[in-house]
Amino acid sequence: MKLSILYDRLRWEEKALADEAKASGDEPSLVDARSLHFDISEGAKAEGLGDAVLQRCISHYRALFSTRILESLGVPVVNEYSVAEVCGNKLATTIALARAHVPTPRTVVALSSESVEAAARHVRFPLVMKPFTGSWGRMVSVARDRGTLSSLVELREEMHNPLEHMYYLQEFVKRPPRDIRAVVTGGEIAACVYRNAAKGDWRTNVARGGTSEAFRPGRDLVEMLLKAADAVGGGVLGVDAMESDGGYVVHEVNNTVEFRGAQSVTEGSIAAKIVRYTKRSLKK
């Protein structure tokens, strides 16, 4: 199979995917998405990208747009546009999870600063304020009281992006200083780890210094993680869950999953499983 691995910042993961594809007898090409342009008018065709594209752009919108274009030109992409669209928007992700009856932390969206206080009363303090798009724990803040929330809202209102003037508030889940990251490939858990928060940070993102620890999920959790992946449309996904007092809750699903941290404590190549899934999905 000729597989294009589309990137805009070459990370360890993209090189690992190319190495594994090569090792399994495929013909991988690392393609810098920034160098591409596409004719999207009637009758246009995509050339030179092989049998399938593995979407690995670090820029959410570049990933989203290039996937949309490629699919319109008949090139299969992992993950699909519809999946990237849901995962790239926390509002859409939470709705998809809730519809599929996957437990999530209580989440309330306020459509302006005017309704934030009422939304906060609904969620209750302490709460977490998250941007609708974004990753790596960026701009994710804890508001422990009304005063902090008011300051956070004031800061957001100063930003010019209208997306910052609506508010995604989520229950602050009392959990150990860790969460769970599963790399899902289709209907399988390719890897599952604890992500331990770095000292001095409550966030567990590896990009924030969080560290991975081997973890074997029980049957119920496996079922929940796969259900969460399925809820957003399935594919190659990073599903994040937390251990709350009332059981596990899923709080995020990532569609261009980073797995260097998980790989460091996982036997067997995660990249190889992703390549195998990509090939399987082509045969469907």
């Binding site: 910042r9 670090i58 820029s59 959410h60 919108y61 798009t133 974004g134 990753s135 790596w136 960026r138 992006n161 990009a207 990073g238 990532n254 569609n255 261009t256 999953v257 980073e258």
Partner: peptide
């Protein structure tokens, strides 16, 4: 830095992009 060109044993670099608001996984 980001590698922008590799030709005949020479390499060209440019300062790496800073993290954009939509970057992530």
């Amino acid at each position: 830095y980001e590698v922008t060109e590799l030709k005949g044993g020479t390499v060209l670099l440019k300062p790496a992009d800073s993290v954009e608001e939509d970057w992530g996984e």
